[in-house]
Design a binder for these strands. Structure first.
Lengths: 148, 148
DNA sequence: ATAATCTATTTGCATTATACAAATAGACCG
DNA sequence: CGGTCTATTTGTATAATGCAAATAGATTAT
């Protein structure tokens, strides 16, 4: 069997609310870096201020995304020279290419947003706009007919 | 190295626009089944009518999601008795539990929607609302200061 | 001095989500 | 009988991502 285990809560890409958009951390970090350069630890806190409190970010994921963004030339990094209360910070800086990439992300997310709205509207029209029918005794019959 | 290959286009959960919400196919199929019972092949076409044309569904994914939903008791299935122009169809029917599950999905998606809006608004305010600063020569200095 | 603690980054690993491809299968048509 | 259409199923590769722990420097308390 090649099936996923339905509704299982293990590790990995799990479905904890709110439902995530794939790789959303990427544009979120890029936007924060558009404000100003920053190191990973600060970015993790910055995510909350972006209004993503309900979207707790995993540290390892953040650092890996930053690593990948750098490998792709979307950001550059330098080790901070001044003393810190810990190991040297790696400060990330958005590149021109990264800005363009963020813009393309936004365009795609606007599409995602429209799609989400169509779905939610369809739900409200069909389900909430017709609350009675949910427990209507004839529903099963209608459904059978609908199956063509 | 445990790093992803950035921006690679192989198989798997890839980033093709519009950016997907994790497991979005699940609520989409549940909503279609709320309209009326249907078999997999018809549901694939139904997704387009839901306004998800830009969200082409992979057949195997659809069937696997249906299988998992049944295993979880969210839908039931029966083999269609009447003759078809192919192998017997498996017709899926939404259960009461499935309806409740769809409702919980919608609540989570509304959260996702709010989060997406906060992000898009933040982008517009910061980036589009201040187009000049993108190519401002002093930007790098400001960024450095911002890195605390 | 050294153990605990904080800040900060990195690495290992397990698991889910999902796309591409092909196999399977019944019915019908030429 | 081979091709084609409808329809479902299975194999497989890989990306995305969370949990946990290792690493490490600096500061503070014992």
């Amino acid at each position: 069997m090649t099936h996923r285990h339905a509704f299982r809560r293990g590790r990995g890409a799990r479905g904890i609310p709110p439902r995530r958009i794939n790789r959303f951390l990427e544009p979120a970090l890029l936007l924060l870096l558009h404000h100003h350069a920053a190191h990973g630890y600060a970015l993790i806190e910055g995510l909350n201020k972006l209004g993503l409190e309900a979207y707790p970010a995993d540290v390892s994921t953040v650092y890996r995304v930053l690593y990948d963004l750098e490998a792709a030339g979307m950001v550059t990094s330098t080790h901070e020279t001044e003393q810190t209360a810990g190991p040297p910070r790696r400060v990330y800086q958005l590149t021109e290419e990264g800005q363009a990439y963020l813009a393309s992300w936004v365009q795609e997310l606007e599409q995602t947003d429209r799609m989400l709205h169509r779905f939610l509207e369809a739900y409200q029209e069909h389900v909430e706009g017709d609350a009675a029918h949910t427990h209507n005794a004839t529903q099963n019959v209608i459904d059978q007919e609908g199956a063509q």
